[in-house]
Design a protein around this nucleic acid. Structure first.
Length: 275
DNA sequence: CAAAGTGTTGGCTC
DNA sequence: AGAGCCAACACTTT
């Protein structure tokens, strides 16, 4: 499910619904979701107020009163819902945060890949995973010159490089395929073979495409919904992801699907050539 | 029924 | 030390 635009959409939804809410207690139904001791997790969260919500890359960060933060990664299928306590518990809801106003924040995750952990707020950007993230994909933070310099040091192919989060944060499998198509770069091009013009174009497309996807409320392929259980609409703006066998919008060539770094990868064999 | 799926991590090798 | 590769995680859908 969630790449940066989807996580940001979830963050904005939660911000509207649970800011200022107080946690009375927490129930952990599937302990492996929690990094660290689940009973410590529940105990530490009691009586905390939800002060703000941050995001870094695909990580959601809940900031509580008393210098405590919760780092939450949704991985493939994680979702948050806000429900009344009387609403029946959904299948695959694994963590329930009981709020003071008779509502519950519920974490739901079919594949149970998501993880959450508590850290002092001052350390929230220092945890493993977040610490190694590249810059946020915005004009203010993501610099084209250093992006090009970093690409030249990478021996991996460009698709794998974009997915590893270290040169720029937030791209996942869908948006990686999309920005490579927009930039006319073959996903298996070694990152170090990209020209400065390629890097600049890719840089600009990454910033523009993720911003556009946030505006659309993210991409719903199978199951993604935001905290209001609303679908996104960016799936209607996709050019190659899920378009195997369909004509390329630029040249009419049939879109191909291959596997790159264990991930399904879509591209146009005619306008994206390996260099 | 086998395979693939929106993501990261840990263990391995070089 | 650091980069790169790949299996593992758990369950549903095709």
């Amino acid at each position: 499910m969630p790449e940066l635009p989807e996580v940001e959409t979830v963050r904005r939804g939660l911000e509207k619904m649970i800011l200022g809410a107080k946690i009375e207690h927490v129930k952990v139904l599937y302990p492996k979701i929690i990094n660290g001791d689940p009973s410590d997790f529940c105990r530490l969260l009691q009586e905390r107020e939800i002060l703000s919500l941050d995001r870094r890359g695909k990580y959601l960060i809940f900031n509580f009163s008393g210098d405590l933060s919760m780092i939450s990664h949704l991985r493939m299928e994680g979702k948050y819902f806000v429900k009344k306590s009387s609403d029946p518990l959904e299948k695959h809801t694994h963590i329930v945060f009981f709020l003071h106003n008779g509502r519950q924040l519920r974490y739901n995750d079919v594949r149970k890949f998501g993880r959450m952990e508590l850290v002092p707020t001052v350390q929230r950007y220092e945890v493993a995973g977040i610490k190694k993230l590249g810059p946020e994909p915005t004009a203010a933070l993501f610099d084209a010159t250093s992006f090009f310099a970093n690409l030249r040091k990478k021996k991996k192919v460009i698709k794998t490089t974009l997915l590893d989060q270290t040169l720029v944060a937030g791209l996942g499998n869908i948006y990686a395929d999309e920005v490579l198509w927009l930039s006319r770069i073959h996903p298996e091009t070694p990152a170090c073979n990209l020209t400065e013009d390629d890097a600049k174009l890719l840089h600009d497309n990454i910033i523009a495409e993720l911003a556009k996807a946030i505006k659309a409320g993210g991409t719903t392929i199978k199951t993604y919904t935001d905290a209001f259980q609303h679908s996104g609409s960016f799936q209607f703006d996709l050019h190659v992801y899920g378009k195997k066998g369909k004509p390329c919008e630029r040249c009419g060539t049939s879109i191909e699907k291959i596997v790159v770094g264990q991930r399904g990868t879509h591209f146009c064999p005619s306008c994206q050539k390996v260099k």
